[in-house]
Design a protein around this nucleic acid. Sequence first.
DNA 1: GTTTTACTAGAACGTTGTTCTAGATTAGGA
DNA 2: TCCTAATCTAGAACAACGTTCTAGTAAAAC
Lengths: 211, 211
Amino acid sequence: MVRRSTVRAATAARKSQILDAALSCFTDVGIEATTIDDIRRCADCSTGSIYHHFGSKEGIASELFIEGVQRLNADLMTKLTRCRTAERAVKTVVTQYSDWVTRNRDLAGYLLNSRDLAMSAEAVEMLHDVNRAHIRRVFEFFAPFVGNGAMQILPVETYIPIISGPIQDYARHWLAGQFTDSPAKVKAVFAEAAWSAMKGADGPRDAKEPG
Amino acid sequence: MVRRSTVRAATAARKSQILDAALSCFTDVGIEATTIDDIRRCADCSTGSIYHHFGSKEGIASELFIEGVQRLNADLMTKLTRCRTAERAVKTVVTQYSDWVTRNRDLAGYLLNSRDLAMSAEAVEMLHDVNRAHIRRVFEFFAPFVGNGAMQILPVETYIPIISGPIQDYARHWLAGQFTDSPAKVKAVFAEAAWSAMKGADGPRDAKEPG
DNA sequence: GTTTTACTAGAACGTTGTTCTAGATTAGGA
DNA sequence: TCCTAATCTAGAACAACGTTCTAGTAAAAC
């Protein structure tokens, strides 16, 4: 049985070289407008090399997308598991995202604006698996805070939009050049807003109102 | 010199026929994957006709996008100007969006997932003008509520993300088939969350609302 | 050293967006 | 009704781009 003990050293470098070139091109002119030849020139490699590693232009786009999501998710989990209170955890979801987007402009812009990417069935499933696993971890982390009344009980599918929706929308506008202040600069506002919308009704306020 | 007093009757019909066909194709397989020939077949017209009316595939996509934004904006303003209190106005922004997306699935999905559309310089400017005018109207409407303390004073660029971000994110997931309940079904939750994050810290100062 | 596998190169192919030219259709004026 | 100009449609032809293919090179396994 042949064992591929070590991937050839140059391979990983070549792949990330192509991915970096692709991200750069996608950022400059958009996915559709970048040609394979653009990427080839920017990565200083041949067409054959690109197709050997990724199979298609869509393969590059998919791998870039999934790898980006995984990096973002991993960074969140690292910071989240250090939190001891519901308030700190909710606010960390917002501030971590703000900082990450500010530090990784190009990749963040790619992730935010490539939602309708036509991906292969395998890539879609891969992405779903990654997302499901991440969401499960996050929900397991937050479950106790909902259980003990520190956070509101809401329909499950509304938690993520309520907490992350605003800062994501802000980030999208900032990345499009429409806002001047970086997400990192205004993160406190969004962290506060998220916590306002999410904290348990501990005060004398009414809990609910007829819609 | 002949003046085109009335646009030829068939023209408007032909254009909207092509736009409808394009939206249908874009929804089914994505913008990049739909060919001019797909649209031609679906709209039952010729290639020449398409290029006469829109100039390019991107021209179709741009016009569809801008027209959709205008319809959405117009619907919001109609409903918004009926509101008399800050709470009702903020909640209306959320519920109107929920209802509109639920009623216009395809178009809403197109608007939400085509942000990175490569548009011509003119189309970009056109869209900016439309957006700026709309945002100015909305802010003029809300200004009094901020002035009298019914709503929080925040950095201007944060209002829209805080109010609309969550329901937009929810809508995106629903349109992608990831959530089962339509935005219209869960709009009350998001309206409540938006108002929680937005209302003045000292309690509402609207006449009708008791502390 | 020989074999096997991983990788690269670049020409060739087929599809697709776009252009072009000729012709059909309609509106307005005698 | 006929004429003229403008608008619109048709579909073949062109050029660009994603992809495939064949041959060849470099590195690991034995």
